[in-house]
């Protein structure tokens, strides 16, 4: 009879000490540019760590910074450098570069088909300032330019405006449609037949056409080589914000991002690995 008691005790002990199927969730938010990659790398990570779940949201680089500082998320995503103020409030957080990205001006396929496949930075600036409003002004069809801008706090805008307009916070034509994420931008550019926008290099896909930059007579396409060499001027690093007191799992994940496997995924996402 004693052995039966033993069994029950053992059974209950085992049930109670069984590893619970409770997963750890890592929350990530910030730049949608980074988010594209983040989703890939998170999926890959989950293959080997099935007990870890991810919650990845956009919101922009600035939002990502803010959320991370408040520790409302485990990892922040940023597609630009820290501002001076941000550096001051960074605290015990690392600004880790995980990839290299470029910002590419894109147009709807119909625009490119009508003859616009390259652009000079000054023309780009004029379009964005509202000085040029019709495609025929830059060698395309007689269609009005549907101008698409991103929100001010977006890292992508930050970089683009810096190069094209001279300042990250430079204003653009009020006619511009302001969107939040790269996805939305891609949606509008591919949905329209007269739009122009700028997106992260990794978002350039078959649905949109990336314009080559004509710089000092040379055509600089947004290619890996040009981006790496710096020939392509509109580039930036992609960062994650990792608090120093992050949990072991989070730290492990960031290590994974920076690992060979993780960096391979950077390429898969369309960015350049940080080397």
């Amino acid at each position: 009879m004693r052995s039966i008691h033993f069994f029950w005790i053992l059974l209950s002990a085992m049930i109670f000490t069984m590893p619970q199927a409770r997963a750890e969730t890592i929350t990530v938010s910030g730049s949608t540019t980074v988010k594209k990659y983040m989703q890939l790398v998170a999926d890959a990570y989950m293959q080997t760590h099935p007990d870890v779940h991810f919650s990845i949201n956009g919101g922009g680089s600035t939002s990502g910074f803010g959320q991370l500082i408040d520790r409302r998320v485990d990892i922040g995503m940023m597609s630009r450098n820290l501002t001076v103020e941000e550096q001051q409030t960074l605290g015990d957080v690392q600004h880790v570069a995980v990839a290299v990205d470029a910002v590419v001006p894109v147009v709807s396929h119909e625009v490119q088909q009508s003859g616009v496949s390259q652009i000079t930075p000054s023309m780009l600036a004029d379009i964005y300032r509202g000085k040029i409003t019709n495609w025929k002004q830059v060698g395309g069809a007689d269609r009005q330019i549907l101008l698409v801008d991103k929100e001010m706090h977006r890292g992508t805008r930050h970089v683009f405006a810096q190069y094209v307009l001279g300042s990250p916070t430079a204003a653009v034509s009020p006619e511009a449609i302001t969107l939040e994420s790269n996805d939305d931008v891609v949606n509008i550019v591919s949905g329209s037949d007269q739009a122009i926008a700028y997106v992260s290099f990794s978002y350039v896909n078959a649905l949109v056409y990336g314009l080559d930059l004509q710089i000092e007579g040379k055509l600089v396409a947004a290619t890996v080589e040009n981006i790496r060499s710096g020939a392509y001027p509109i580039s930036r690093k992609l960062y994650v914000l990792l608090p120093n007191d992050a949990s072991a799992q989070v730290q492990a994940f960031v290590r994974f991002i920076l690992s060979v496997k993780g960096q391979r995924l950077v390429e898969r996402a369309g960015y350049l690995p940080i080397q």
Partner: peptide
Amino acid sequence: TAKQRFDLRKVLAKNVFSQHYKG
């Protein structure tokens, strides 16, 4: 008119794409 259409598109685009629709 084309302009009318453009304006419509612009206005709608603001609403539509910002709310993550495709068209």
